[in-house]
Simulated assay, not measured.
Amino acid sequence: MSLVDTIRSTLVPIHREGWKFVAGFFVASLLLGAAWEPLMWIGFILTAWCAYFFRDPERMTPQDDDLVISPADGRVSAVAMVTPPSELELGDQPMMRISVFMNVFNCHVNRAPMRGRVSRVAYRAGKFLNADLDKASQENERNGLVIETAHGQIGVVQIAGLVARRILCWTVMNDSLEAGERFGLIRFGSRLDVFLPAGAEPRVSVGQMAIAGETVLAEFGSAKGPVISRRG
């Protein structure tokens, strides 16, 4: 990797939702430094971490309607057949659920796993348990999308975690999303669940690291020919 590529991979844009937090950390650092200089340097380190947390890098997303792309950076924490949340109105039969857990060091911008039209957006208040726990899917605060795809309806659920206290979703009903397109963000540690209909075959294992907009979580049928990627 060249020096230019290294710099580009490190100095990535900060999402607009993060600028107020970065500014707040920076001002707090200056105020603390006026009282005791070492606190200022600690504050600057935390400011740098905040900027890193809200990073929003470009990704190369495979454009293939047979592929399900990870909506989040993080660790695959579950691959199982589970009944989807009732507010998604996807029925009471188990669907394949693939969960990606994001810690506070992962990029937290969420991306659409498949191309399609958003037919439902459903928010539900709840608890703030550790998002890595299986019961967090049913008990935690969450926001779900139902996307009409070439293979039927899929569900994408943003789940707040132990530290997270704010789910952001700027996608609304009838929006059309491209695979890998940004649709939301969760602040400070959380999880994304993807619910898939029959025919989807998982392509990841529990414990594997996933990259939002790039890692293939599952596949419908078999890929046909070369896969084209979209930068975004």
Score class of each variant (00 low, 15 high):
2 S>N: 15
4 V>P: 00
8 R>P: 00
8 R>N: 10
10 T>A: 06
10 T>P: 00
10 T>S: 05
12 V>A: 00
13 P>I: 09
19 W>H: 10
21 F>Q: 10
22 V>E: 07
23 A>H: 06
23 A>M: 14
25 F>M: 15
27 V>G: 10
31 L>E: 03
33 G>S: 09
34 A>L: 15
34 A>Q: 09
35 A>S: 12
36 W>A: 11
36 W>K: 06
36 W>F: 15
39 L>C: 13
39 L>P: 07
39 L>Q: 02
43 G>F: 02
43 G>P: 09
44 F>Q: 11
44 F>K: 04
45 I>H: 00
46 L>H: 05
48 A>W: 05
48 A>K: 02
50 C>A: 15
51 A>P: 02
52 Y>M: 10
52 Y>H: 14
53 F>T: 11
56 D>M: 07
63 Q>Y: 13
65 D>A: 13
68 V>S: 01
69 I>C: 07
71 P>N: 03
74 G>H: 06
76 V>M: 04
81 M>G: 12
83 T>R: 11
86 S>F: 12
87 E>L: 07
88 L>M: 11
88 L>C: 10
88 L>Y: 12
88 L>E: 01
89 E>M: 08
91 G>T: 13
91 G>A: 07
97 R>C: 13
100 V>Y: 00
103 N>E: 06
103 N>Q: 09
104 V>P: 06
105 F>M: 15
105 F>S: 15
106 N>W: 01
106 N>G: 12
108 H>L: 09
110 N>D: 08
112 A>H: 02
112 A>G: 08
113 P>T: 08
117 R>S: 14
118 V>I: 13
121 V>R: 10
125 A>L: 11
126 G>A: 13
127 K>P: 05
128 F>H: 15
130 N>H: 13
132 D>K: 14
134 D>P: 14
136 A>L: 11
137 S>K: 10
137 S>M: 11
137 S>Q: 08
139 E>R: 14
139 E>N: 10
140 N>A: 05
141 E>S: 01
145 L>N: 04
146 V>N: 03
147 I>D: 03
148 E>T: 02
152 G>C: 12
155 G>S: 08
156 V>T: 08
156 V>P: 04
156 V>H: 01
156 V>A: 08
157 V>F: 11
157 V>G: 03
158 Q>T: 07
159 I>H: 01
159 I>D: 03
161 G>L: 07
161 G>V: 00
163 V>T: 12
164 A>S: 15
164 A>L: 02
164 A>H: 01
165 R>Q: 10
165 R>F: 08
175 D>T: 10
176 S>I: 08
182 R>T: 13
182 R>K: 15
185 L>H: 09
186 I>D: 02
186 I>P: 03
189 G>M: 04
189 G>D: 04
191 R>C: 12
192 L>Q: 12
193 D>Q: 07
195 F>D: 01
195 F>L: 02
196 L>Q: 00
197 P>W: 05
197 P>L: 05
198 A>D: 15
201 E>A: 15
202 P>Y: 03
202 P>N: 03
205 S>M: 09
208 Q>M: 13
208 Q>W: 00
209 M>R: 15
210 A>F: 05
210 A>Q: 04
211 I>N: 05
214 E>T: 14
216 V>E: 06
223 A>D: 01
225 G>L: 08
232 G>L: 09
